[in-house]
Computed example of a mutant assay.
Amino acid sequence: MTAAPGTPQPGTPGQDQPGRTIAVVHAGLGQPSSTRLLADRLAEATVRELAALGQPATVETIELRDHAHAVIDAMLTGFPTGDLARDIQTITRADAVIAVSPLFTTTYSGLFKSFLDILDKDALTGMPVLLGATGGTPRHSLALEYSMRPLFTYLRADVVTTSVFAATDDWAQAGGHEHDGGTALPERIDRAGRTLAAVVADRRQRTGPPDPFATTPSFLDLLGGD
């Protein structure tokens, strides 16, 4: 996991308050990869928009390729360990998640889905999530809506309305010109960052999923001890 400057908490600008945390999860397989590049650009746009709202932010980037074996182990044993467990905790305690996957045969990657499968069923409940995907051709862009969005909706995440798909040609466009009648990639990234930042800025800071044992009385209380 890598960190970058970034995110705050809502409130009056200038007050001394803890910053926001944006967890970026991507399933890019190469180094470098266009999936990581899109994830970074989305994070930068979100942080920039939060800063404009007077809220500093921190970005924590999680590369799933580094956890590939650990993810399979967690599926077999039923629980994650080590660095994978720590990164999952980072996600559940974040103020928002940016999730980006390459598309293979018109859907998200197996590694991306396997990672989501080992999360607690309530880990992303109410979590603001911005979706992104990369692929070879713009024809696959709808996979964000018929494949990725329903997946996060099932997990009860608060998926923002704007998502970003980047085809191979999008990265090659000189000067960010429009492609096939659509909006240029930099503009789509900026719009997505504004959308996520607005949602994050309007919310209280998360502390992770509620502790199911938080209200359980201690044995000392049950015995009436001091």
Rank of each mutant, 00 (worst) to 15 (best):
P5T: 12
P5N: 07
Q9A: 07
P10Q: 11
P10W: 02
G11I: 11
T12D: 03
G14N: 13
P18D: 10
T21A: 09
T21M: 15
I22T: 11
V24C: 08
G30W: 08
S34L: 07
S34N: 07
T35I: 04
L37A: 08
D40I: 00
L42R: 01
A51E: 15
T61F: 09
T61D: 00
E63C: 04
L64R: 01
R65S: 14
A68D: 11
V71A: 02
D73S: 04
M75E: 09
T77S: 06
P80S: 07
T81H: 07
D83T: 15
R86V: 11
D87R: 09
T90V: 15
A96G: 15
A99R: 03
V100S: 00
V100A: 04
P102V: 02
T105L: 05
T107R: 07
T107E: 03
L119E: 12
D120S: 14
A123R: 14
L124C: 11
M127Q: 15
A133W: 00
R139A: 14
R139H: 13
H140I: 07
S141R: 09
L142R: 08
A143G: 14
P150C: 02
T153E: 09
T161K: 11
T162P: 01
S163Q: 13
D169G: 08
A172C: 09
A174F: 15
E178Y: 02
D180N: 15
G182C: 05
E187A: 12
L196F: 10
A198D: 08
V199G: 07
A201N: 08
D202L: 10
R206T: 14
T207Y: 14
P209E: 04
A214Y: 00
P217Y: 05
P217A: 04
F219Q: 08
L220D: 11
L223W: 04
